[in-house]
Amino acid sequence: MNKFQLEQNKAFKLANDLKQGGKGQIGVAGQAKVDRREQRKLDQAKGLVPFACKLDEKLVAQLKERALTNEGGLSEVLVELLVKAGLER
């Protein structure tokens, strides 16, 4: 592997990290990064399941704005809103 290929691989890894973890995992000191498999196991142990749906752009933008101020992130914001709407946890 030459130097160009090494740098290209670093760029691909960085781009993938940004896609997967967002800005929350970059530059955070003292926080161990958990791989996907381990995170899935942790989520399953908590009873969490992935749920995908399609939403309007404006609504998603509002959700993301709220998620920036919430420690739990987007998932926690959605849980709070669904509970307020009358769904039980």
Results as ranks from 00 to 15, higher is better:
I26C: 03
E88M: 09
N70F: 00
G30W: 01
K23N: 15
L42C: 02
R89L: 14
E57P: 15
K64V: 07
I26V: 07
L18F: 04
K54Y: 14
R89P: 00
G47I: 03
G30I: 02
L6C: 05
L82C: 12
L14H: 10
D56L: 07
K3W: 05
V34L: 08
T69F: 13
G86K: 01
K33W: 03
P50R: 07
L81K: 08
G30K: 03
L14P: 01
L18A: 06
L55M: 14
N16A: 13
K13D: 09
C53K: 09
L55D: 00
L74R: 05
E38M: 09
N16C: 06
A32I: 07
A11I: 10
N2M: 03
D43V: 04
K23D: 13
D43M: 13
L87R: 13
V60R: 07
Q44C: 06
K84N: 07
E57H: 13
R37N: 10
Q62D: 10
D43A: 15
G30N: 03
D35I: 07
D56H: 08
K3A: 12
R40S: 09
K84T: 05
Q62R: 14
N16P: 00
A67P: 02
K64T: 02
L63N: 01
Q25P: 00
L42G: 00
V34S: 05
G72E: 04
A11W: 04
Q20M: 12
Q62Y: 07
F12K: 14
A15Y: 04
D56N: 11
K84R: 11
L14E: 14
L48C: 10
R66W: 12
L78N: 03
K23G: 14
L14Q: 12
L78R: 09
A15W: 05
A61S: 06
L78C: 15
K46M: 14
Q25Y: 11
Q5S: 11
K33A: 08
G21P: 02
Q39K: 14
M1L: 05
G27L: 02
V28L: 07
V60N: 03
Q20D: 12
L78Y: 01
K58G: 13
L74A: 00
Q20V: 15
A61G: 03
L68A: 15
D17M: 07
D17T: 01
L82G: 03
K23S: 13
L68T: 15
V83T: 10
A61N: 06
G27K: 04
E76H: 09
N70K: 15
N16S: 11
S75I: 01
F12M: 13
N2D: 07
R66A: 12
R36L: 12
S75D: 08
K19W: 07
K33N: 01
L74D: 00
N16R: 14
E7M: 13
L59Q: 09
K46E: 15
V79Q: 13
L14N: 11
A85M: 04
L68K: 15
K19I: 11
I26K: 06
Q5Y: 06
K19Q: 09
Q25H: 11
L59T: 11
G86T: 02
L14G: 00
K23W: 11
V77R: 01
F51M: 12
L48Y: 13
A15F: 06
T69G: 12
K13A: 14
E80M: 10
L63Q: 02
I26S: 05
V34D: 03
L87V: 09
